[in-house]
Design a protein around this nucleic acid. Structure first.
Lengths: 238, 238
DNA sequence: GTCTATACAACGATAGAC
DNA sequence: GTCTATCGTTGTATAGAC
């Protein structure tokens, strides 16, 4: 089973690649042409934007705030971002690319459905831990997005539910799982994962790290989806 | 077991009382002195504010937007709300009063810990259903509040967790429950309840109403907290 | 490529006529 | 008690010197 430390290293190198790719995608709109300068500053701009937005909200963050935080003047800033809306778009694209790449990673070794479910839960939590600012941002700002971006966000939510539902159904076929309803159960798993990046203060004050949280979530979910024992002590609602 | 219909009726009358009380509390700052006129318009102002804010965000809602939506001119509006900040404060006070009154309601008949847990879950979900706009607003805008309001919101979150933790501990003493850790389990229950008012679109598109959601959540939670059967089929994580 | 200075729109809030 | 007109401020974005 992969540890968070190993996982985080992979994410960190992935992040740089992705920033470079975002730069290349938007080269036409970015006036700064030295790639290394541009990528470095873009990365800083993204990070600062996430930081300020997660404190004040993206809409409440003025471009002046961003200028001060990055140490880049207003005029220079607009050589990188074309507009505030476009900045939002680039940030969302960055996260989406990261999610897509991580979610298509295969578990290190082949596993049974129970192991598969555990792997999915851990990978999901580790990813949101490594990129917490982005996930928090995406969750909190979704309603301010334009329609296309909002639909993409909803699609992402449903997509990740599908991973869990598929895994549960596979477990049902193999006689390992017996959830009340695989789709509904998958829907209930999501908020348990999201709580980790939405309410850090709660878990931090209890000294719970992402590994401990993953263990607790797995222990919480498994009784609801595993085959019950012969006696009815664990049966679901009547 | 109380139905949502009955519960909603109680909430609706409660809401009017509370708006009247908010008016009286803020009489000094409100220039309109006819109580019936003032309360009626204040209620409308609160409702429209929640509606627009939940679409655009409170910060992004201009007072002009609110003026158009309520049909009250800019000048007249400021006879009711003193300032946009004070409007926010009044709205938060309204919800807090409602929560406090509902959460001190006793279950209709005495119950064992398992019944008590079910009652808590249902009451919580029913309240957030009846006042969904307020809870959504409160969750999404918390980070923009001033420190005092933010602390109050966090206190509210912890308070409601305590209800669940107390209930779980009582169940442990009576040999009914055996959660891995009552506090942590209570913390995991919260996001399951919050998902109901945060992601309505997901459940609406599946035609799941609040009663069905409550049933599913109860069925999901109970296996994790009930005493496991003699065989280990339902045991938590090893 | 970066800076300072500024244009123009939209914001919260108020004045004063009715 | 309500309206229209307007204040000063702050927002995004750009022009033009260096």
């Amino acid at each position: 089973m992969i540890s968070y430390g190993d996982f985080k290293q992979q994410i960190d190198t992935l992040r740089l690649d992705i920033c470079r790719e975002i730069y290349r995608q938007n080269k036409a709109l970015i006036r700064v042409k030295k790639e290394d300068v541009a990528v470095a500053r873009l990365t800083a701009i993204f990070d600062r934007t996430l930081e300020i937005s997660n404190r004040l909200g993206f809409q409440a963050m003025s471009v002046r705030d961003l200028s001060e935080a990055t140490g880049i003047s207003m005029g220079a800033l607009y050589a990188y971002i074309e507009s505030k809306d476009k900045l939002l778009e680039m940030i969302l694209g960055m996260g989406r690319m990261a999610v897509a790449r991580v979610m298509t990673m295969e578990p290190p070794e082949p596993v049974d459905p129970r192991g598969q479910l555990r792997w999915l839960l851990r990978a999901h939590l580790f990813l949101t831990e490594a990129m917490q600012p982005w996930f928090y941002f995406s969750y909190m700002e979704t309603r301010h997005f334009d329609q296309q971006a909002r639909e993409r966000a909803m699609e992402g939510e449903l997509m990740s539910e599908r991973y869990f539902a598929d895994c549960l159904r596979a477990g049902v076929e193999q006689g390992v799982f017996q959830p009340r309803d695989p789709e509904f159960t998958a829907a209930l798993i999501k908020p348990l994962l999201q709580d980790w990046y939405l309410k850090r203060w709660k878990y931090r004050r209890r000294n719970i790290d992402v590994e401990a949280y993953a263990d607790a979530v797995i222990a919480f979910i498994e009784p609801a989806v595993l085959q019950p024992a012969v006696t009815a002590g664990c049966a679901a609602n009547d």
